[in-house]
Each structure stands twice: as structure tokens, then as C-alpha cells.
């Protein structure tokens, strides 16, 4: 079940408890965590000082292009409702079918303070 809408800004990173509660079920639903690569950063033309982002990502497969584009429309509407920037990459294949990959992250999230004796 989805958590209620988040209020306030910036939003903090997931806590350990939130991670345990939400991320493990998401992994079971084929979501994965991945990290933005230097190649992607260069492709976006951002600075080398740009912080590396960890994001949630999932690839969705569709039987045909009609259902694929219908899904993109649904994603667009959800993005507007949730005030989420939408990014996606298409043209991929999953199990021999049309696939769309959706990365999800918060670009200006609040990182917790490191412990003073932490590395």
C-alpha cells in the first residue's frame, strides 16, 4: 500500500524502517535500485561535481505499441497528479516485447547528517 502524500520540502532520504517496509516488496515487484552513471551524467551535460543519484527503476513490457503508448499517457497523468517530473527511456525489449523503463528519484532530497566518526 502506498504511503500518504509527502508534505514539505526537501524530502529526506528513506529511513531504515521505511526501507525495510517499502523497498523489499518493491523488489519483489521487479523494481530495482540503480545509480546514475558517469556516462548518463555526461549525456545530460551536467557538471562533474554533480552528485551521483541513486534511483528506483523498473522496466515495463507491453504486448503492442498501442498499449505501450496508452501506458505512457497514464504515466504522464500520474506525474501531473503527483507533481513528479517524468523521465523514461523507451525502445527497449523485455522478454521480446516492447518495453519502457521508468527511473524514479528525488533530485533535491535531504541527505541525513553523517555520524561524526563515520567514513
Amino acid at each position: 500500500e502506498a504511503p500518504p502524500p509527502v508534505k514539505g520540502w526537501p524530502t529526506p532520504w528513506l529511513t531504515q524502517d521505511e526501507f525495510n517496509h517499502y523497498m523489499l516488496p518493491l523488489y519483489e515487484h521487479n523494481w530495482r535500485t540503480t545509480i546514475e552513471t558517469q556516462k548518463q551524467i555526461q549525456a545530460e551535460g551536467t557538471q562533474s561535481t554533480h552528485a551521483l543519484g541513486t534511483f528506483l527503476e523498473k522496466t515495463f513490457a507491453f504486448d503492442d505499441s498501442r498499449s505501450c503508448f496508452a501506458a505512457l499517457q497514464s504515466i504522464h497523468e500520474l506525474c501531473e497528479k503527483e507533481k513528479h517530473h517524468c523521465e523514461w527511456t523507451g525502445g527497449g525489449r523485455l522478454d521480446g516485447k516492447n518495453a519502457v523503463t521508468i527511473p524514479v528519484c528525488t533530485h533535491t532530497a535531504m541527505r541525513p547528517e553523517w555520524p561524526e566518526d563515520g567514513s
Binding site: Y22, L26, L56, K58, C105
Partner: peptide
């Protein structure tokens, strides 16, 4: 703390809603 990219409850909510939204559309 510094504002940097990361995974937040906002993203988790979006991912779960996305799964629910696309449940009938994926193959």
C-alpha cells in the same frame, strides 16, 4: 543535511501508484 539526489517516500509512493496504474496495461 545537503540536498542531493536520493530515494524518498515521495518516490516510493510514486512507484507503488505506478504499479497500480499500469497493472491492467502491462503484458
Amino acid at each position: 543535511g545537503r540536498k542531493v539526489p536520493g530515494i524518498t517516500l515521495r518516490d516510493v509512493r510514486f512507484a507503488i501508484l505506478l504499479d497500480q496504474t499500469l497493472a491492467c496495461q502491462v503484458s
